[in-house]
Nucleic acid binder design. Structure first.
Length: 485
RNA sequence: GGCGCGUUCGUCUAGUGGCUUAGGACGCCGCCCUCUCAAGGCGGAGAUCGCGGGUUCGAAUCCCGCACGCGCUACCA
């Protein structure tokens, strides 16, 4: 059918935020579509009015945009198969459900929730292998149905599943999967509020929107036979199915809230790069077959294939994500890091301070290999943004000796003679003093580091001092001398 | 309970009958580099490939059974 241009879709329901598992599903659809020169459609499955969340759709689209997953059709961009909001397609579902009824492939059901509840209880008590609707309303007479319909008794439309048949279908990832219709319930297709259930709406829209490949989470595998039945009842060609392995919590259950962050926006807020998140999530369930782990989106598109998607679930391991964030961040050009750093400063206590681009660029080159997140420029090297107010206790104990103040004072005096010093100039001065006094460089370096940064770790001291500049360095030494003598 | 899917180092994974003393990565540990911390280099610990049977000269790789895990079992998606 659509072998020339595959049509893919990502069809989330607007429950408030984009789940990290949803991001991966969207990504795989995107990668597949791009790889095959196909189209990607965004469809919103807002058929559950009870779960409707204000602003969820906007949020979903915003997050997808942030992640760089772009669509060819969707509620915000329109397209040939509009509308892309299921809540705006109610008439279509109703009409098709009625068509099924007229052909005996579906039927009205007037059973109350109470009767359904009771039925379930009884079936459980009898230890029946599976709890299913008993098709009670299938056997209502025409006049009974008319009567109930006319007196506006709440009703649903159910799928009429024929017993004793086998439903067999191929899944790109799992191979041939087989179900027996005896294990399939007469699923509700149209709810009493006139909204369709997922099963009806999904099948109808996938067909009407000419979707060629359905790539979705494994949680849908069990209900795929219902969808197959629907395709067959309608006489429609079936799409190709691919059920993705689940993303798991550390305890191997389906990735969920409670056990950590599952919303993409949480990671975004924490400062994760979209490149890192995409890279990470792509590798959770897919691998090209080699040892490569660092990917940019273009290469992912080029190499992705469904055939190499795994069958088993993958635990979401934050350590590796952090590493990938570091790897992606360090590869960014300094000018881009500068922009991000400026944005971070704006949000921080240093927002009123003025730093030149030249200065910040020096900070970036000094700290680049030491930070995994932009905000760490501020948290790991605050001394580049303001003078230290306190000095790390532990470090002081270890590195601040009896003679430190005196040595530091000597160093300061020599620094004062310097004119527009380079990093090497600072180093030379320190070298000279050390050899003149016959002491190790460490005896000067460590106190200097403490005085100037307040902490015991960071870039080379000469780098710090050079970046800070002569005036600031001397002023910090003075303060330290005062406080520590 | 029923049905379905899955099972290689802690985690992500390579592996599709011999090239495997099961490879890589993250994390962990050690050494080197070094003014510190990183980065980098080198090395280490870590998987009897869920278990038990087969098939085969030979199995992580093929077949069967079992166990365990997960998913589904809603007028939720």
């Amino acid at each position: 059918m659509n072998e020339i241009t595959p049509r893919l879709r990502f069809a989330p329901s607007p429950t408030g935020y984009l789940h990290i598992g949803g991001l991966r599903t969207a990504l795989y659809n995107y990668l597949f579509a791009k790889n095959k020169n196909g189209k990607l459609i965004l469809r919103i499955e807002d058929t559950d009015r009870k779960r409707f969340v204000e602003g969820a759709i906007e949020n979903l689209i915003d997050t997808l945009n942030w992640a760089g997953i772009s669509f060819d059709e969707g509620p915000d961009i329109g397209g040939e198969f509009s509308p892309y909001l299921q809540s705006e397609r109610l008439g279509i579902y109703k009409e098709l459900a009625q068509k099924l009824i007229s052909e005996g492939k579906a039927y009205y059901c007037f059973c109350t929730p109470e009767r359904l509840e009771k039925l379930k209880e009884e079936q459980q008590k009898q230890k029946l292998p599976q709890a299913k609707y008993d098709k009670y309303c299938l056997h209502l007479s025409k006049t009974e149905i008319e009567e109930k319909l006319n007196s506006c008794i709440p009703h649903v439309i159910r799928l009429n599943v024929k017993p004793d048949q086998k439903i067999i279908f191929d899944d790109v990832i799992r191979g041939t999967v087989e179900f027996e219709t005896n294990n399939i319930d007469d699923q509700v297709l149209l709810k009493s509020d006139g909204f369709p259930t997922y099963h009806l709406a999904n099948v109808v829209d996938d067909h009407l929107m000419a979707i060629s490949h359905v790539i979705r989470g494994e949680e849908w595998l069990s209900s795929t036979p219902k969808h197959i039945i629907l395709y067959d009842y309608f006489g429609w060609e079936k799409p190709i199915f691919a059920h993705l392995p689940l993303l798991l919590n550390p305890d191997k259950s389906k990735l969920s809230k409670r056990q950590g962050d599952v919303a993409v926006e949480d990671y975004r807020e924490k400062g994760y790069l979209k490149e890192a998140l995409i890279n990470f999530v792509a590798l959770l369930g897919w691998n090209y077959g080699d040892d490569k782990e660092f990917y940019e989106i273009d290469e992912l598109i080029e190499k992705f294939s469904l055939e190499r998607v795994h069958k088993s679930g993958a635990v979401f391991n934050i350590e590796k994500l952090n590493w990938l964030n570091f790897e992606h961040l360090r590869r960014k050009p300094d000018t881009e890091v500068l922009k991000m750093l400026r944005a971070e400063i704006e949000k921080s206590e240093f927002k009123d301070n003025k730093y030149s681009d030249e200065y910040l660029l020096k900070v970036i080159s000094a700290m680049k290999e030491r930070v995994s997140f932009i905000k760490e420029y501020l948290s790991k090297s605050p001394y580049f943004f303001h003078a230290p107010e306190t000095y790390e206790e532990q470090n002081l104990k270890k590195r601040w000796k009896e003679d430190s103040a005196e040595l530091l004072n000597k160093l300061k005096e020599r620094f004062e003679l310097l004119n527009n010093p380079s990093k090497e100039d600072f180093e030379k001065v320190l070298d000279e003093i050390a050899s003149q006094l016959g002491i190790s460089k460490g005896q000067l370096v460590h106190p200097l580091r403490i005085a100037v940064s307040g902490v015991g770790e960071g870039p080379g001291v000469y780098d710090i001092v050079y970046i800070l500049g002569k005036e600031e360095t001397i002023s910090r030494i003075n303060v330290a001398l005062q406080k520590l003598s």
